[in-house]
Write a protein that binds this DNA or RNA. Structure first.
Lengths: 241, 241
DNA sequence: TGCAAAAAAAGTGTATACACTTTCTGTCGA
DNA sequence: TCGACAGAAAGTGTATACACTTTTTTTGCA
């Protein structure tokens, strides 16, 4: 189909031999930024050519990406960029609220001054990007904040589960984002969270992150397209709204 | 080292060609039952010979097992059965209490009669194995109950996270189990949980599973060996107790 | 004897070849 | 015109070869 690919999209570094982990990173990032949209075919041979490695290396990278839920792999089928449906999206948000809520509750009052300063800086950077109107930078900065929280989690198991859930929600946000409301910035959410973390108010911190994630979820278009509508399209029906 | 391996341990089926997923299952099960103890070396060539496949297939299986936290893979090093330390064990239990608690809360009052009957049968089987004194069968049955709960989770994302956490806690239980108390059966825990699920008492169900997991964790030997003791051994110190 | 360097062995990393499967494409008949 | 079928093309599955790295063993010297 669209084999008018991607030398650009997966911009090759040109220099020394690339590792499978670097391939994982590049594909993950391309999916996250929607330069590789859902269902895009990812044939091993083509990827190998692009990155200048053989299929062995590509296969390892794809197996990893499958485990991270970024691509889907089925026997004898070409790998594809994963396309989570609405139900899975909702489930992912539920899971993330549970886990991220617990992580920030554990974190409340336990952060060092340096760690708080790092977070502070990122929150400021996010607000700044918003004021500049640089939506891309704002999203990037916001993601970094959440990833840092996951990394700081005193419970490493919950931390790595959270890292995975942040990635998965980010992918579906990019996918289901209401176009008009793309830049609706949830002002004040992150500063509020930070204040509770600093004050050691565990339950308030949990509440803040849960509210934030609820608001994020509401920015998406989850109500209007559901399974029945897909079915209508397949059967040649007409969309109502 | 111990290359007096395993044709027995990973009992080959003998018949038709084996798939990488089957290899994953066999190794996982061998780890779970401690026929492959922590840190056991798993060279690709040896595994390939045992299963009658080439290293390509084995590599894929090992990559998957790495993602499931069953083995650990490092560049240019032989794969090894993973050996979680005490801190990770504690963290895994915390995570599992959080996730399994939420899953059973979601499940309360939502199970069909058939699903409840299935659970009932397993709980009865567990009690029966206990009465017979068949510890292996009892553990097997108990594991099955928890895996079924994960599978029934209405939230599939939480369900698959739970599946992973059940596996990880099972491995560490096998690893850190106090030898004398191995067969201390937590009588009544599962029937109690089931009653709450049937009655639709979400918070009581959550409480029951959390209590159950706390009791499970207490069966282990987590206090007595910690990092400092390992260090002492390395430095030639003498154990205190 | 002890220990360090060299050699051998064991093992992983990766490219490649070929068998097999799936998907696409174009042709022929109703 | 349309569907079914054959053949070609695209793609995955797996074994194998060889380069490179790590670990173990041996050797030789103080």
């Amino acid at each position: 189909m669209n084999e008018a690919w991607q030398r650009q999209i997966l911009a090759e570094s040109g220099n020394g031999r690339i590792s499978d982990q670097q391939i994982v990173d590049k594909i993950r990032r391309a999916v996250l930024t929607q330069r590789l949209p859902p269902n895009t075919r990812l044939p091993e041979g083509a990827l190998g050519d692009i990155f200048g490695v053989s299929r062995s290396v590509v296969r390892k990278a794809l197996t990893r990406l499958d485990a991270e839920h970024v691509v889907s792999l089925a026997p004898n089928q070409v790998a594809r960029v994963r396309a989570p449906n609405i139900d899975e999206t909702r489930d992912t948000f539920v899971a993330r609220r549970l886990v991220e809520g617990e992580v920030v509750a554990l974190l409340a009052g336990k952060l060092t001054a340096a760690q708080l300063a790092d977070l502070e800086k990122m929150v400021a950077g996010e607000a700044d990007a918003y004021r500049r109107g640089d939506e891309g930078a704002r999203i990037e900065q916001s993601l970094r904040i959440h990833h840092l929280l996951a990394e700081l989690s005193p419970n490493r198991v919950l931390g790595s589960i959270l890292t995975d859930l942040i990635l998965r929600t980010s992918i579906v946000i990019a996918l289901y984002r209401r176009d008009g409301l793309a830049s609706c910035y949830l002002e004040g959410d992150h500063p509020r969270l930070l204040a509770h973390l600093r004050a050691g108010e565990a339950e308030a911190a949990r509440g803040a992150i849960v509210d934030h994630l609820n608001a994020l979820e509401r920015l998406m278009d989850l109500g209007s397209r559901d399974a029945s509508i897909d079915l209508m399209e397949i059967l040649g029906g007409r969309r109502v709204g």
